[in-house]
Amino acid sequence: MSADRIRLVIADDQAMLRGALASLLELEDDLTVVGVAGDGEAAAELVAQTTPDVCLMDIQMPGMDGIAATQAVRAASPDTRVLIVTTFARPGYLRAALDAGASGFIVKDAAVEQLADAVRRVHAGLRVVDPALAEASLFEGANPLSDREQQVLRLAADGRSAAAIASEVFLSAGTVRNNLSAAIGKVDASNRAQAVRIAQDKGWI
């Protein structure tokens, strides 16, 4: 193995996909995969052990998601750059990922040549963002929801009542209802279910 190869860690909860990505990227003369992980916590631990140049990170993974894992990776190995590779091309995810310290954001349906080029550019210190998603992010604006509003909307997604949410987050049912009402207004929805759908579609929760 050449000493100047770019060393990669791949984090994705789908075993077949992370295996395919590893195999495809290994075909590049200047890339080598030093490890793979199936969730965010494992990715952070693996990065701490191997200190790769670039970590390719999925967003939706069990336990620690890719946004939190990006923060953990950057803390564990500040010289490791994070490239988000996800199915979910949502403006809110892009902003959250960049705020967490990611250097790039690319969707999984990109050609392998485009992905390899994104890895090289991120490794070189550049920021790489899917152009269509960057444009959408500019038009959508920042996430309007507070941390608490995001939390209660996530819990409301499965249809649980305000009282049930309140018992989980140690708030009164009235406070939960107020947060839900505020979230509905901020995303311009007519009800709780619609607010959840809008926030999920935009990557705000």
Results as ranks from 00 to 15, higher is better:
residue 77 S to Y: 05
residue 182 A to N: 11
residue 100 A to I: 06
residue 120 R to D: 08
residue 63 G to C: 06
residue 182 A to P: 07
residue 65 D to L: 01
residue 130 D to Y: 08
residue 106 I to V: 15
residue 126 L to R: 15
residue 68 A to V: 12
residue 104 G to K: 05
residue 82 V to G: 01
residue 110 A to N: 12
residue 141 G to M: 08
residue 170 F to D: 15
residue 148 R to D: 12
residue 120 R to N: 00
residue 115 L to Y: 01
residue 161 S to L: 07
residue 120 R to L: 05
residue 177 R to W: 09
residue 167 S to N: 10
residue 178 N to A: 14
residue 63 G to W: 07
residue 151 Q to I: 12
residue 146 S to K: 08
residue 147 D to A: 15
residue 153 L to A: 04
residue 136 A to F: 09
residue 75 A to V: 06
residue 94 L to R: 02
residue 78 P to N: 06
residue 157 A to W: 01
residue 85 V to T: 03
residue 110 A to H: 12
residue 96 A to E: 03
residue 127 R to A: 14
residue 189 A to F: 06
residue 114 Q to H: 13
residue 181 S to C: 09
residue 119 V to H: 02
residue 168 E to T: 13
residue 62 P to N: 08
residue 127 R to W: 09
residue 91 P to Q: 02
residue 185 G to C: 01
residue 87 T to F: 14
residue 187 V to A: 03
residue 82 V to H: 00
residue 73 V to R: 02
residue 82 V to E: 00
residue 135 E to A: 15
residue 156 A to T: 01
residue 107 V to M: 12
residue 77 S to L: 01
residue 114 Q to M: 12
residue 151 Q to D: 13
residue 125 G to E: 04
residue 135 E to S: 13
residue 89 A to W: 06
residue 84 I to L: 06
residue 59 I to V: 10
residue 91 P to Y: 05
residue 164 A to N: 13
residue 189 A to L: 01
residue 124 A to D: 14
residue 81 R to V: 07
residue 159 G to Y: 06
residue 80 T to H: 08
residue 132 A to W: 07
residue 105 F to E: 03
residue 148 R to T: 11
residue 171 L to M: 15
residue 139 F to Y: 14
residue 86 T to L: 02
